[in-house]
Design a protein around this nucleic acid. Structure first.
Length: 713
DNA sequence: ACAAATAGCGTTTTT
DNA sequence: CGCTATTTGT
């Protein structure tokens, strides 16, 4: 398709073009923030298909989030509407791709599974583990941290050394758990990748050998995902990976450090760079550059734009009030609400902004994920379906019968007896679940499914949430039937696929109410902001102790810096930072040193004042500032003392030179200020909070910077 | 049964 | 560092 060459490639800059056209069997692209990473990735896929004649089915495109996968797929489909979606089955998250391989290509029977296995969430695995501990009377220490202990124990790969450092039975538990999951035909997220890795290692004739593996955000890979990549590359796939080492903010959950270096050496990959940022104004970009670790060649193409605004606020409440006004003003001036976002460090900080914004009538959306598991009735329903589709899943059967809110409401002991001994006639609901396979294909619609299980009875009609629950279940069933209809498989297989995908992708059952107001200000943590962009970004609470968060070690500190970098580079046109003079216990009063790292010439002067405050408030703020100044000068004294010690020798050496240059030095430029009452004056003395100026006819006056009506001229 | 010793957080979150 | 939950020792 020659058309592709001319039209698409010419839209790319030379760096992007080089990446798309690169012929190396392994190529890793160091994509700077906002440099068109996804564009290159999509272009690469299209180039491989149209020019290199690689089928879409022969490509595996791996992302970390469903959102990223959806974006890539929808952009490909938008460019080529006649492209059948089935051809993009290998395009998805690592986990969904592993699931696809396990179901379609890999011999899961070797691990004791059937092809009909279902995906479970981590909580269910924990229940299973606790059950096994009880059953086998295992000795497990620190049971309150069982989840974490299991995670680390499962990550131990070596077959030999299986002695717990606490001398308990944790490794026996891991083994039993693995066997139990296989016999119940269940896999966790972890198992999906782990089992795929296990089965891909064997050289047996698997008709699975993608020609290309393309990875997005490769800097986020953990060791399991790297093994998955390695299996595919070992089977002869070419590798094209895109990522940014400056955006590593998830190393605490296991993303491998120095991944670029590792990949480059392991696969002798060619390294390319995308240096040009198209997103942010050059002022914002210049500030961002202060937070880059290595001298990455991050260049911009945009005009300087607005200066960065730094606001001092009394506390989070004051900031929320100020932001409400500021957001309204920007909205009046033409910025849509949807182009504005407020970022904070901790989830717990969102509440204040939610309260104030609702009161002020500003439409907003808090980014919080909800899954089916968070809604009790849906959790119950999914487990009802799971047992109906998989009789080996006895824990789900017991859960359904013994639930307090829904179902038969019988005791767990009784439920266990019924389910484990498969006693017919003891429970109507149990019999219904057992008989589900027989009638499954006959059910006409979701209504029929609802009445088959007699859910109007089992959903507890006397409960306060009955109406809500019933609607939620109806919606769940409807989404499921729509999903099954789209699949070409039979009803039962379709429902299995639905359960798995609802575990992997979550469900939109409850999304409707939230997304009603599309044009809304987004509130989120700095972490959640990754991958997004907004015209206007507010980062709140840029105090030391919060941004950066007080961390244990140096690595943590570096990650905090990258996190702030990610935050400020989300902004296209406006960046506004704020800090509190009276933060909670956690943070220190006063600006974070991250603010001081930004060159002052990029900042808008701080002459603007916050909203009017009462006299009492003012007094409190002044006092606050005094203590703040005291603390700061104390810190500064300490710091300068250390510096003095360090530079003592140097000072001695250059003393004479200093003296000479001192004589030559120009006197400090006279700063002039204007006051509404005293007129124009000359600044005599100035520090961070105070300013002393001499006015003709009035003499010397002292001001607190934040509250004086002074104007620099 | 009680006291002393010890381990492991703290925040961020996707699948 | 300082707190809590849990284990260990008496």
């Amino acid at each position: 398709m020659e058309l592709y060459n001319e039209k698409e490639l010419d839209r790319l800059n030379p760096y992007q073009k080089e990446a798309v056209l690169d012929e190396s069997p392994a190529c890793i692209v160091n994509a700077n923030v906002g440099s068109g990473k996804t564009t290159v990735l999509i272009s690469k896929v299209q180039y491989l298909h149209h020019v290199k004649k690689v089928n879409y089915e022969e490509m595996t495109v791996l992302t970390f989030t469903n959102k990223a996968a959806d974006e890539i797929k929808s952009r490909l489909l938008a460019a080529e509407p006649e492209l059948p979606v089935e051809k993009l089955r290998g395009f998805g998250t690592f986990h969904s791709t592993a699931l696809y391989y396990l179901r379609e290509y890999l011999p899961v029977e070797k691990l004791g599974y059937t092809r009909d296995f279902l995906v479970i969430d981590p909580e269910e695995e924990l229940e299973l583990a606790l059950d096994l501990i009880r059953q086998h009377k295992l000795k497990i220490k620190y049971k309150n941290r069982l989840k974490k202990r299991l995670e680390s124990a499962m990550a131990v790969r070596g077959e030999e050394k299986k002695v717990s450092k606490y001398q308990d039975d944790i490794f026996d538990l891991v083994r039993l758990l693995r066997e139990e999951k296989a016999s119940q035909d269940k896999m966790t997220f972890f198992d999906l990748l782990e089992n795929a890795n296990l089965l891909l290692r064997e050289e047996i004739g698997i008709s699975l050998s993608p020609k290309w593996v393309i990875v997005d955000e490769v800097q986020d890979s953990d060791s399991q995902q790297l093994v998955f990549l390695d299996r595919l590359v070992s089977r002869g796939a070419n590798l094209f990976a895109v990522g940014d080492p400056n955006q590593v903010i998830y190393s605490w959950r296991g993303s491998a450090f120095q991944i670029f270096y590792t990949l480059k050496h392991k696969y002798r990959a060619k390294e390319l760079t995308l240096p040009i940022n198209y997103r942010s104004s050059s002022s914002i970009l210049e500030a961002a550059r202060c937070f880059l670790q290595n001298g990455s060649p991050l260049t911009g193409v945009r005009e300087p734009g607005n200066k960065i605004i730094v606001k001092r606020q009394y506390d989070a409440f004051q900031d929320a009030c100020y932001l409400a006004g500021r957001i309204k003003k920007l909205h009046r001036e033409g910025t849509p609400y949807g182009e504005m976002a407020v970022f904070y460090r901790l989830q717990s900080q969102s509440g204040m902004f939610e309260d104030v914004f609702s009161r002020e009538g500003i439409p907003f959306e808090v980014s919080l994920k909800r899954t089916v598991g968070d809604v009790p009735v849906l959790r119950w329903c999914i487990r009802l379906l799971r047992f109906s589709l998989n009789k080996k899943d006895t824990p789900s059967g017991i859960y359904v019968l013994a639930s307090r809110e829904y179902g038969e409401g019988i005791s767990e002991k009784k439920a266990k007896e019924i389910v484990c001994n498969s006693k017919p006639g003891a429970s109507l609901l149990f019999d219904k679940m057992c008989g589900f396979s027989r009638i499954c294909e006959e059910l006409g619609n979701e209504e029929a499914l609802f009445s088959y299980f007699e859910l109007e009875r089992y959903l507890n009609p006397v409960s306060a949430s009955y109406m809500e629950d019933r609607d939620a279940v109806h919606r769940l069933f409807q989404i499921m039937f729509d999903y099954v209809k789209e699949q070409q498989e039979n009803r039962e297989a379709g429902m299995r696929a639905f359960i798995n995908s609802s575990s992997l992708y979550g469900l939109d059952v409850l999304r409707e109410e939230i997304s009603e107001e599309k044009d809304s200000v987004k509130l989120m943590t700095l972490h959640a902001s990754k991958g997004l962009e907004f015209s206007c970004v507010f980062i709140t609470g840029v105090n030391y102790g919060l941004i950066p968060l007080k961390t244990r070690d140096m690595d943590g500190e570096e990650e905090e810096r990258r996190l702030f970098f990610v935050g400020i580079t989300r902004a296209k046109d406006r960046l506004e930072l704020s800090y509190y003079t009276n933060p909670g216990e956690r943070a220190m009063p006063g600006e974070s040193r991250y603010i001081r790292m930004i060159p002052p010439r990029l900042l808008e002067g701080e002459e603007e004042r916050g909203p009017a405050v009462s006299l009492q408030e003012l007094k409190r703020q002044v006092q606050e500032q005094r203590t703040q100044v005291q603390e700061r000068s104390l810190q500064e004294q300490k710091r300068s003392l250390q510096e003095q010690e360090r530079s003592l020798q140097e000072q001695k050496r250059s003393l004479q030179e200093q003296k000479r240059s001192l004589r030559e030095q120009e006197p400090a430029p006279t700063k002039r200020v204007r006051h509404p009452r005293y007129g124009t004056g000359v600044v005599v003395r100035e520090d961070e909070t105070m300013l002393e100026a001499e006015f003709e006819g009035y003499g010397t006056k002292e001001f607190i910077k934040a509250f004086s009506e002074l104007e620099y001229i």
